[in-house]
């Protein structure tokens, strides 16, 4: 049987100390199967972003275990976490975070230069439908186009996992839909696990699995048997 992409056991994250301590995660036990599209839903402050940061190797838990396949993330040094992000993880940010001084292709090359088994940058850009705009700087691209470059940058390394924190948060619905479509395509073509944090519960309809977060822990996990394509989702 295939190992889950992620497994956490008793994962806890506490900010601050003593009476002013804030418990962002309260002993989360979770398994995320590989190759699925997983959507994390929940109100602000429910801990979903904190979870994403920790399993993405950006932050560390206060207690508990985090496994990526058989690798123990909670025991890794900073350098090992960097290595992990470099080799396995792609990130898509809410505000794109492109390097303004690099063209679209160069932003993608930024990642392909350091990745172990990257795809061709132009190929990554055609996957997101930006073949014609590879030599444009971020300032010359619309918001949706910038987000698609960011996705191209994230998928170009052929990541095992794609983390998306509110990827459509700054976009209008039509553009948002096309971005989601790209994510679904990547999941289908590369077999990457896609982990997406969102406010918009309608987007959960395209997921294999929806994890509801509340008050630092998992409320419920719903397996979605009637997956919709992004085009079918009503906003």
């Amino acid at each position: 049987m295939q190992l889950p992409a992620y497994a956490t056991k008793g994962l806890t994250k506490v900010y601050g100390e003593g009476r002013s301590a804030v418990h962002a995660l309260r002993g989360v036990d979770l398994e995320i199967p590989a190759g699925e599209i997983v959507v994390l839903l929940g109100p602000s402050g429910s801990g979903k972003s904190t979870l994403l940061n920790i399993i993405g190797g950006l932050d560390r838990g206060t207690a508990g275990e985090v496994l990526f396949r058989d690798q123990r993330l909670h025991e890794m040094s900073d350098a090992e976490l960097t290595r992990y992000r470099r080799d396995h993880v792609g990130f898509v940010f809410q505000f794109y975070n492109l390097m303004p001084s690099l063209t679209a292709r160069e932003n993608v090359e930024l990642v392909t230069e350091i990745a172990a088994d990257p795809m061709d940058p132009d190929e990554a850009l055609s996957l997101v439908g930006l073949k014609e705009r590879t030599d444009h700087f971020p300032a010359q691209l619309s918001g949706g186009e910038q987000q698609r470059v960011a996705i191209a940058r994230a998928i170009a390394k052929q990541p095992d996992v794609l983390f998306c924190d509110e990827p459509t948060g700054a976009l209008d619905s039509a553009t948002g839909r096309s971005v989601l479509k790209v994510l679904a395509d990547v999941n289908a073509r590369l077999g990457s696990t896609v982990l997406m944090v969102t406010h918009a519960s309608s987007q959960a309809q395209m997921a294999d699995r929806v994890i509801h977060f509340a008050d630092g822990n998992i409320g419920e996990i719903v397996e979605n048997r009637n997956k919709l394509t992004p085009e079918q989702i009503a906003w």
């Binding site: 350098a79 960097t82 992000r85 470099r86 792609g90 990130f91 975070n97 930024l110």
Partner: peptide
């Protein structure tokens, strides 16, 4: 700082 943090997130080491 934001650009640099982004670089770190996508897998650049501290030195890079």
């Amino acid at each position: 700082s934001r650009d640099l943090a982004s670089l770190r997130v996508i897998g650049f080491s501290r030195a890079e």
